[in-house]
Simulated assay, not measured.
Amino acid sequence: MPKKPRQLSDEALMMIARRFSVLSEPLRLRLIHALFEGEKNVNTLVDLTGGTQANVSRHLQTLTQAHILSRRKDGLQVFYAIADPTIFELCELVCGSLEKQFAKQAEAFER
Rank of each mutant, 00 (worst) to 15 (best):
V56P: 04
E11F: 07
M14I: 07
F109M: 07
G96H: 03
N43T: 08
R6F: 09
F88P: 01
I32D: 05
F102T: 15
A83P: 00
R18L: 01
K73Y: 03
L8D: 10
Q53H: 14
S24L: 00
E39P: 01
I68E: 06
L63F: 05
S97F: 04
T44S: 01
A54I: 08
Q101W: 11
H33V: 03
G38C: 07
L31G: 12
M14R: 15
R30E: 10
C95T: 13
L69C: 02
E110H: 07
F102M: 14
Q105T: 03
C95F: 11
T49C: 08
Q101D: 15
C95A: 12
K3Q: 10
T52E: 10
L35F: 04
A103T: 11
L29N: 14
L69S: 04
I16E: 12
Q61Y: 03
T49G: 10
I87L: 07
V42S: 11
Q53A: 14
R30S: 08
N55V: 08
A81T: 09
M1W: 06
Q105P: 00
L48H: 02
A81R: 11
M14Q: 14
L63H: 07
H59S: 01
C95Q: 12
Y80G: 00
R28S: 04
E11T: 03
E92S: 02
C91I: 06
F102K: 15
M1Y: 07
L31I: 15
R71N: 02
E99M: 06
A34K: 05
G51M: 11
D10Q: 14
L13D: 06
L23Q: 05
K100N: 13
Y80D: 01
A81W: 03
L27K: 11
D74L: 08
F88M: 05
Q105L: 09
N43Q: 12
F109Y: 10
E110I: 00
F36K: 12
I82G: 05
G50C: 10
T62D: 02
A66H: 05
K40D: 05
P26A: 07
M15R: 13
D74W: 00
H33A: 09
E39D: 06
R28L: 04
L90R: 12
H67R: 15
